[in-house]
Amino acid sequence: MRRSLIAFACGLLFALGLGLSGMTLPSKVVAFLDVFGDWDPSLAFVMAGAIGVHVAAMRLLRGMGLVRGVQPQPPATTAGIDRSLVVGAAVFGVGWGLVGYCPGPAVVGLVTLEAPVLIVVAAIVVGMVVFHRRRG
């Protein structure tokens, strides 16, 4: 129960961060990726802010002795840097560039009930299910 409450709050905070940052506007995402055109570098600040806070908070908590050792991580599905990692990331990047949505903003964007968002999310779900069916 406690874990679910924390997860709910984190999901909420995550969505607010996406909305404030501009990640929930595919046009802004595409403008960030448009390095050879009308480049808008804003979204580089999202990653800088997120990684900066995450790393700083971990250091602080470890320094205070509140986080001992290495936090348990979910087991990696594939060890090391392999073909699946590189091909999967490359394929995802093409989709991201085409519509300016990565999975988080697509899920959050569902609340608009706009047809393009519903189509993208439905196709994302199909893509994920196809992958897991093939893998058995």
Binding site: F92, I119, G127, F131
Partner: peptide, 23 residues
């Protein structure tokens, strides 16, 4: 809409094969 469908399929399949996305 075909672009939306193709992009969604690539995002869904690619993130599962590559074990993650932007987050």
């Amino acid at each position: 809409w075909p672009t939306l469908v193709v992009a969604g399929l690539l995002i869904g399949y690619g993130t599962q094969l590559g074990g993650g996305c932007t987050s």
